[in-house]
């Protein structure tokens, strides 16, 4: 078996929270382990507050974990990383406008990075920056543009060029297409797919948009309240979801198939990570919950590479079956 590109082991992230006089601990990531093969794209999905963005920041070295490790190509990365270690994992953010300095030209942003990391010498910086722009589908004249002169889609391409500039071994994209118009989203997803082939890019793709995940990812991990509750290949997970939460997410995800408003599959909202329920953390909202779900935390149930942490994995009830029955996608020719 090849060494995974990325290996996250039993990761815990906690934030101290003060509400009034009470000090509490928010367990944002609560024991996450997951692997990523070279040139694989792993999707991470879940509701807001599930810890997916915190996980992204830990992988990228922007947040320190309380416990657990992040390994790149079999080598553990320390919580505080050197410049070289930082370089190996790069992030692409949701809002390309907010993550670019409005005063700097695109060329200045890229050449500064190339220089700081000593990637090419001064004489070849411009050539290299223009290469990067071409690679992400921007014209060479974007070199002299400032962010405000670019559209949202073009700014996101600059964000991707900036991540690629330092030749990372892994890209972490956090809601990288969420702020873009649908037609632009498709173009950026196509770009990621091209880069994966041309650069053998490995990527963690964090998103709340299941249709984008379905299009770009090889495997998906579903997070709920700081834990991964299901992992599997895109095909397996979307066609035979094992966890009732995954089925509910699939049913709630808007697709063009529905003819009328369907009954909401999940009642209530995600509980606060300050008050994680006992037993299975999903049980208060679960249509399948039985007594042991209130008491015992579920262990992994396996179907090959597809794992689900649920006492009633792959049991389907009437309420959430809608998610499994509606294979997501459009049948436009009836």
């Amino acid at each position: 078996m090849t060494t995974p590109r990325l290996s996250v082991k039993d990761l815990h992230v906690q934030f101290p929270v003060r509400s009034g006089h009470r000090k509490q601990t928010l367990r944002a990531v609560d024991g996450v382990s997951v692997d990523l093969k070279p040139s694989e794209i792993l999707g991470i999905v879940g509701e807001s507050g599930c810890g997916k963005s915190t996980l992204a920041r830990v992988i990228a070295g922007l947040t320190e974990p309380a416990h657990g490790s992040v390994e790149l190509d079999g080598r553990p990365l320390p919580p505080r990383r050197t410049v070289q270690e930082q370089r190996a994992i790069q992030m692409v953010f949701q809002d390309p406008g907010a993550s670019l300095n409005p005063r700097l030209t695109v060329g200045a942003v890229l050449t500064e990075l190339l220089h700081r990391h000593g990637i090419v010498d001064r004489a070849r910086e411009r050539e290299r920056a223009e290469d990067l722009l071409r690679r992400v589908g921007l014209p060479a004249r974007a070199y002299d543009a400032r962010p405000r002169q670019l559209s949202g889609g073009q700014r996101q391409r600059v964000g991707i060029a900036r991540a690629l500039a330092v030749e990372p071994r892994l890209i972490v994209a956090d809601e990288a297409v969420a702020a873009l118009d649908v037609s632009v989203q498709a173009a950026i997803l196509n770009l990621f797919a091209d880069l994966r082939v041309s650069l053998a890019l490995s990527m963690v793709f964090i998103s709340h948009d299941l249709s984008a995940v379905q299009a770009i990812c090889d495997r998906v991990a579903v997070m709920y309240l700081g834990k991964i509750v299901e992992v599997g290949s895109v095909d397996e997970l979307f066609s035979a979801p094992g966890h009732p939460y995954t089925r509910a997410l699939l049913a709630a995800s808007p697709s063009l198939e529905e003819t009328a408003a369907v009954a909401p599959p999940l009642t209530g909202e995600p509980p606060s990570p300050l008050r994680v329920p006992n037993g299975c953390r999903f049980h208060p909202r679960c249509p399948l919950a039985v007594e042991k779900c209130h008491i015992a935390e579920p262990q992994w149930e396996m179907q090959g590479e597809h794992r689900t942490a649920c006492h009633r994995a792959w049991e389907v009830d009437d309420v959430t079956a809608a998610g499994a029955r509606h294979p997501r996608g459009i049948a436009l020719n009836p």
Binding site: S183, A187, N190, F192, D194, A215
Partner: peptide, 23 residues
């Protein structure tokens, strides 16, 4: 037509998604 086709759907991998040229 183009708007509908750009929405990712099952069986169409990224790389083959329809896009609308220009802005």
């Amino acid at each position: 037509q183009a708007l509908i086709e750009t929405i990712p759907r099952r069986g169409v991998a990224a790389g083959q998604l329809t896009t609308i040229q220009g802005a």
